[in-house]
Amino acid sequence: MFPASFGYVAAHSVEEAVQLLTKHGEDAKLLAGGHSLIPAMKLRLASPRTLIDLATVPGLRGVRMDGNTLAIGALTVYADVASSELVQKHLPGLVDAASVIGDVQVRNRGTIGGSIAHADPGADFPVILTALNASFVLQPRSGSRTVAADDFFIDFYTTAMAANEVLTEIRVPLPMAGSGTAYVKLPHPASGYVVVSAGALITRQPSGSCALARVALGGLGSGPVRAVATETELQGKPLTPEVIAAAAARAAEETDPEGDTYASAEYKRHVAIVYTRRAIEAAVQRASAS
């Protein structure tokens, strides 16, 4: 299978990429690792006339500490997110997610920014990054702007990015002391994409009660969905197995997943409850160990 013909331009700076996007308009696509875009082009689901390669732009890879924020370059591949000592130390939930995407070879090539910008409803990073209250740095023609994950994912494959913006960085605030993060996923057995997944950020007070809970779910909508009822239920309560189970039982409230040939809507809602409980339990365990 070959993609339809297209023109290729290697960008050498973000500014150049923005200029090229502006020049070529809707017919152009940005190329990062290409592990969503190239398969779509081979199937002719996408046929951009111009590809603008970001891999040739220096400075878009790697993980660094910036004050109280972990800054991850948009072109950082999944394997490097998972093996980053900074991520392992501060955001084990992000390691959980980065380790279960695709397979070894895919993780050596696919990028965190590509996953975010593509916004596949079956992707892992949007879910955990929503739970972690991440934000995304976008560079338009002049200046830059930052959009919170909660406001970024609009619909299936649709984000708050404008057509001529480049996603340059993913910023994740370091969780407060006493926090734990976790991500669990039920993958489709053939594709490996999310059937249902849950990401959690839990902050425990020294007393053992819940100071903060952020829980996001994948597979239940067009993008990540916050489990607001679960978060509210946990707030201020002791993080006992009973309290966690009762809060997780409300995870699928106000969700309306679509059933498919593999999983019915009812099954997805049930799995969401079980996986929410597991994600919270794992996060609490890590909070206790930290």
Partner: peptide, 15 residues
Amino acid sequence: GRAVKSCTILAVQAN
């Protein structure tokens, strides 16, 4: 130095 799937990479990306 990394294992990758060459059916999902463009030759131009290997420059």
